[in-house]
Design a binder for these strands. Structure first.
Lengths: 336, 336
DNA sequence: ACAACCTATGAAATCGATTGCAGAAATCGA
DNA sequence: TCGATTTCTGCAATCGATTTCATAGGTTGT
């Protein structure tokens, strides 16, 4: 691989001048510039980014930490991040933390030593965030994504409260009054907010909440399946289920199907996320859509702004949600 | 951030000695070593990888290029790669090429300048591979993944021929004789091999192939949907469909469902991939499983071996496949 | 014509580590 | 005891770019 020295020699100038041509610095004679360009062309020279990084103390890389890339939501987020990063000439280092806090802490450390210019982090745990505060203190630009903590850190999150509200409201508008809730760990802010949105919608429509058809701490597909089975055992009638993600909703649908009931004729199901697979299920899942791609874009834009010392107008960007109507919600059966 | 110089000063030694302690070089006095370690501890020193990379001419990073991270198959592959990379102290740069050859070429160039130690590439196009040959020539370790080209390059691919054969055989064993085929572009080796496996199984069982129920060049969910609709119009009876991926299979299932028929009672459906979502569909999809995670692991191991000048025993690693029995395949309806 | 000021360029320092070479100190052998 | 060998350490070069500083030569203004 040719170096700048080779280019300079061929062009008959010093490396300083050759470098000036590359960086587009002002004072370079047109003729010399042309000679240098020619040499660059002839040798097929390309800047060595490692050397450049060392000298400039910046590497042109962004780190993106996510809990688990197998969750399709995060692969869409990732695409949004990389698209914007590429536009601005940044390379993205993707780190999958395997839903493990320890892993996350180690990764941050490792990448710090590699002089990553900025971090975008969808943290595994919202409770233990000492490492995030430490990172913030070390002055490396940091943007939190999806998950946020209770401190002054630039964040991009979805309006989960509104999402919970809209999803519930949609069911209420269809005529449902007995709406079961299948959610995740309420210690995570997004789960909690979706739940609060659900409660608020019920309240606004004058529907009494019923603790018995509210199930939380549910994880994954199997969790959704089990939750519905429990609900069906209760013999308490419910005509719709609001799930806090699409995966749980698919598990719920299977339980309903296995019980010999039909979606949406007997029970309507509502998801949350709008993953690709929600359009593929049979019947196709009605769900609250999160703008995953846009969130990735926004986070990347923000971290790049921080790198360039541009302060964002607001610390926390709340992304909007919307209901995507498909085939798992209909009016409730008359026998209620 | 403290540098090695700071450490050396605090320990009262030269940077050379401090460096020797870090790199674990032989001749360092135990007492000095201890003093240096103490200084490292006290300052919280951590090696600067940019400087280290420049001097050692290696960066400790691997590049993983994939066509599209939204394809869940590749997110599993990615996890396999990163797991092994981490074990060996490598950081992975993931590049999503958006199914675009030009994008792939540019990315390779960009990463070359960053002195990536090795490349793992699931190339977008198997036809245009000049850039891959050039990369091979530049002596940077390279492993091809999933997609392969017709040259002497270390590759990790799945035994697609056997996959096509096994899937078909499974249907034949269940009693099916009229098996439709819904496949992708036969110019891609994996599609072609799956198709050839299908033909061979038919032949081995003495079943005549029928071009009319063989549809190729199908893309995605919608493609699978359309393909089945065309097949149903033919009024040629078929009792099973072999799809060359799970997404197409889900599209096929929806078409069958929309036609008022039932899977598997009227028509059996077989997929290929064994994505997470194939377990979530209703009924759950019977499919030919590819060991995506293991392929990622294998590719990472191979590229690391190449970096360390360990030659692999065979140039092309053929990963095994297996049929995962779920609920979309049963014996054909009697009326045939 | 002379001071003041540009313009264009090169020499050398710098980023932060690793490593070849040389030499001091310690150990060994006879 | 003296030379030979081994052990340990430091100096300085190196990786490949960027950037500060100095300066030669040219231009401008008065």
């Amino acid at each position: 691989m040719p170096t700048l020295k080779d280019v300079a020699k061929l062009a008959g100038v010093s490396t300083s001048t050759a470098s000036r041509v590359l960086t587009g610095a002002a004072n370079v004679n047109e003729a010399t510039k042309a000679r240098v360009m020619e040499a660059i062309e002839k040798l097929g020279y390309q800047t060595n980014f490692v050397a450049k990084s060392l000298r400039q103390r910046r590497t042109g890389t962004l780190a993106l930490l996510i809990p688990n890339i197998r969750n399709p939501f995060y692969s869409i987020v990732t695409k949004g991040v990389t698209a914007v990063a590429k536009q601005h000439g940044y390379t993205v280092i993707l780190a999958d933390c395997d839903d493990d806090l320890q892993h996350e802490v180690e990764t941050i450390n490792r990448l710090k030593n590699r002089w990553v210019d900025g971090f975008i982090i969808a943290t595994t745990s919202e409770k233990n965030y000492d490492h995030l505060l430490a990172l913030q203190d070390s002055k490396i630009p940091l943007v939190l994504l999806v998950r946020k903590i209770d401190r002054e850190i630039t964040s991009v999150v979805v309006d989960d409260y509104r999402g919970g509200y809209l999803g519930t409201e949609y069911l209420l508008q269809k005529g449902h009054r007995r709406i079961a809730f299948i959610g995740g760990d309420l210690n995570l802010s997004f789960n909690r907010n979706r739940y609060l949105g659900y409660l608020k919608a019920l309240k606004d429509w004058g529907v009494e909440k019923d603790e018995e058809i509210i199930i939380t701490r549910i994880i994954g597909h199997e969790g959704g399946y089990q939750a519905v089975n429990e609900l069906l055992l209760l013999e308490k009638k419910f005509t719709a289920v609001l799930c806090t993600n699409d995966i749980k909703a698919l598990g719920a649908m299977r339980a309903i199907y296995d019980a010999g009931l039909s979606v949406p004729r007997d029970i309507s199901v509502m998801g949350f996320d709008n993953l690709d697979l929600s359009a593929l299920s049979i019947p196709a899942l009605t769900t609250v859509a999160q703008p995953a791609y846009e969130m990735g874009e926004e986070a990347a834009q923000r971290v790049i702004d921080l790198i360039n010392n541009i302060k964002p107008p607001n610390l926390i960007k709340l992304m909007d949600v919307s209901v995507v109507e498909r085939d798992t919600v209909t009016v409730p059966p008359v026998y209620l």
